[in-house]
């Protein structure tokens, strides 16, 4: 992938919900092949930034270009994984049918709205990618939170995206799944640009090459620069997230993180 090609380009962006400013003067560029994370406190505007990139929200000022066009026009190239908390956990649907939703809006369907063989194959591949091949026939209701999250990643992959947007992929998942997810993302990153939202700095520092700190304003740092001062700057002096993080203990895997 060509590192010089810009996938997301945001210039001088402001966004407010009614009169409450959420994002101010944001400038950001994501290039092809990047694996970056948006971090920041709750209410800092992380999800809002994702929704602006998807064209679900309109900026009050400034521009967003995704693949060189307006976000609405680039949607077919974007795979999006929302937080699963806003979905109905009792909705009667099979895992495979959730993943297949990624193929909607494409022209390879049968007359009566069924899916083509090719669509089915894409969905099965996406499920294999997140390690849930044997769960295709299961019901979405029966899954754990972490499994649901992976199904939604598979659904995003099933759109055959060039840009993958993930909103809190590490929410509700245990340590082992987190490691799997880490490997999956690194593997996927060989063929697509990935931008994820996370409040989990430990995970982020392990996976991504740069972090985008969103707390009303946006700053970009290389991962190696995540130190005490920076965390203080992002979270306004709240160290809890780091202190609770298993990866940061005793200079373990991350000597560049402060030992606490």
């Amino acid at each position: 992938m060509n590192q010089d090609v810009s996938v997301i380009k945001i210039t001088d962006l402001d966004f407010a919900y009614q009169d409450i400013p959420v994002l101010q003067n944001v400038n950001l560029e994501i290039r092809q092949g990047e694996l970056s994370s948006i971090v920041g406190p709750n209410g800092g505007g992380k999800t809002t930034l994702l929704k602006l990139i998807l064209g679900l929200l309109e900026p009050n000022r400034g521009q967003i270009e995704v693949f060189g066009v307006k976000p609405e026009k680039a949607r077919q190239k974007i795979g999006y994984m929302p937080q699963h908390a806003h979905l109905d956990p009792l909705f009667p649907v099979s895992v495979l049918n959730v993943v297949l939703m990624g193929q909607l809006g494409r022209q390879n369907r049968h007359l009566w709205g069924g899916y083509s063989r090719q669509a089915l194959q894409t969905a099965r591949q996406a499920l294999a990618e997140v390690g849930l091949s044997d769960m295709a026939k299961n019901s979405f209701q029966q899954l754990s939170g972490g499994q649901r999250q992976r199904v939604l990643i598979a659904r995003a992959l099933c759109t055959e995206p060039q840009l993958l947007l993930l909103d809190e992929p590490t929410a509700n998942i245990d340590q082992r799944s987190e490691e799997n997810l880490y490997e999956t993302l690194v593997r996927l990153n060989r063929r697509m640009t990935i931008l994820l939202v996370s409040h989990d700095l430990g995970f982020v520092s392990q996976v991504v090459k740069s972090v985008i700190c969103v707390n009303r304003q946006v700053n970009i740092h290389p991962t190696s620069a995540i130190d005490g001062t920076l965390i203080k700057e992002i979270y306004g002096g709240d160290f809890k997230l780091v202190r609770h993080d298993h990866r940061c203990a005793k200079n373990g895997h991350h000597p560049h993180l402060p030992s606490v």
Partner: peptide
């Protein structure tokens, strides 16, 4: 099905 399950995603798929 897609609209009832996740309207936002359905919209993003161009439905």
């Amino acid at each position: 099905l897609a609209i009832c399950f996740d309207e936002e995603f359905a919209r993003l798929r161009g439905l």
